[in-house]
Design a protein around this nucleic acid. Sequence first.
RNA 1: GCCUUGGUAGCUCAGUUGGAUAGAGCAACGGUUUUCUAAACCGUGGGUCAGGGGUUCGAAUCCCUUCCAGGGUACCA
Length: 592
Amino acid sequence: MNIEQHIVTATIAAVKQLYDQDIPENQINLQDTRSEFEGQITIVVFPVVRFSKKSPEATANELGEYLVANVQDVTAFNVIKGFLNLTIADSYWLNLFNKELLSPQFGSIKPNGQKVMVEYSSPNTNKPLHLGHVRNNLLGYSVAELLKADGYEVIKVNLVNDRGIHICKSMLAWQRWGNGETPESSFLKGDHLVGKYYVIFDKEYKKEIDRLKTEGQTEEEAKKNSPLIIEAQKMLQDWEAGDSEVIDLWKKMNGWVYEGFDVTYKNLGVDFDKYYYESNTYLLGKDTVDEGLENGVFFKKPDGSVWIDLTADGLDQKLVLRADGTSVYITQDLGTAQMKYDDFKMDQSIYVVGNEQDYHFKVLFLILEKLGKSWAKGLHHLSYGMVDLPSGKMKSREGTVVDADDLIAEMVATAKQKTEVLGKVNNFSEEEKEALYNQIGLGALKYFLLKVEPKKRLLFDPSESIDFQGNTGPFIQYTHARIKSLLNKGGYSTEVNAPEVAITATELEMIMLLSKYPSEISAAAKAYSPATLANYLYEVAKMFNKFYHEVPPIVKEEDSAVKQHRLNLSSVTASILKTGMNILGITVPERM
RNA sequence: GCCUUGGUAGCUCAGUUGGAUAGAGCAACGGUUUUCUAAACCGUGGGUCAGGGGUUCGAAUCCCUUCCAGGGUACCA
């Protein structure tokens, strides 16, 4: 039992003894004491006043006296307005550090026996990834890692949108204007090559629309009658019919895209346990529709289309199958959800998808619940805000995107340039340098994207480079490298017994902060929010740097117990920074 | 129109189940290196928490309302 729990229990007992009242545990409100006051733990006494029927100050004083007398490590108290500040013995904190934080198991949470699927990335295979996808990928990866750290068994899944009219557009444009261009012949990354033809299609399509409009057609008619779009639709039908020529082209071009994506994924450091392809799943869901019709959850309109009425739930009527029997988006998703569950029988399933699809997922989950799927309550849409440019939304077709590969390359180049200016890598080999630049550039990018709460939209200004100072990835990486260097120079060994020493105020603050690591992991996992972890790690790094500057050189410390203790503190800090950053998908260097 | 998510310092963001005088970073200004990595540390300035109303001992946080911005809105995904 930790000190907080002791205090809560004792406070309940105190209220019973002093006021003969039973106070519910949730009325006892503990918080960290603000640094300008004496003490470490504060009880907010206002809720207790209802039970004591005395003024906040009187209540606080009586509680304070009781706690000092009855709780072992509470050594003193002071009252400021309605706040009871408790001083906890230094020996308690030192003991907490030596016994718990220093143990190799610290921070690792036991498996909870639950299985969770995280679906993320889920790209279209007609264009390369851009900054919006980068946010998705980093978020998905780190949430998956976060859940692992919180004791879940995690399955990372990528549902690739590899079919449909948009894919046919690239294919058609390549067929018509490509002159047999390949990634090899043009030295263009496969996904970029395919994306190039997607843009060409759009350009030519627009030209045709303009031409048809000058011939007297309306915009809508022109969009429908353009020979180009008709041909693309024909191609989609051929694809569905299994036309071998179309299928071959499709396989070839998708193959290029996958090669390209693999490079980007590798650079981003994300991975998947299982790929699903929509070309295999797009026909799913019709069974589910039948099921819904049978048990009356769905109904059929006279034209034969199938619907669900969600107006009682404050939503609309929603089409789940077209009159001609073909699927819509949600049909597939119903079927795919069932298939995923059948494959893995997971307790939870998380969809990392942008907030533009909030409504879709609300409907999807509600339908599955109405169909009586026991696993529907485990479904969760991890919705995140769009990444916007100062000019507004990114649009692939119009080329107003920040390309993922370009951005990564720029970040690494910036890292290189900044590192060279500092001149600390002269004794690095070329390979070590390259690895370091990669680590720092990606660390800056990932931290920049992950430190923001997922649901908030994110503004990215390409003209302002991402910082490498202050609340950034490189700052935390630097702190880690600095500690590693310190441990080396100090001849650190974990074998030495935990020393009994006097601790400074900053050390005490550090111990309190470090001790929160496990609960920070759990809280971040429950909120599906790497951002809270990122901000915590920044606090830890900042705290270490403060400590490092305050304390005389540890390496030269003559009191061996003090030296050992400070190295211990440094070491625990380093390992929290390392494992925490790894959860964010960021690696930390040994030196930089 | 309706539904939904945001609005906190010049900029980018934190802010726990409502708790003390709303915090960081960047940018600006000043200081710190014969001492373990200055991508660091210390300090100064900077706020109508979008506006208004309400609940409460106490509101950035909860409720109502207005404004602004993003997203969605029945056969795109």
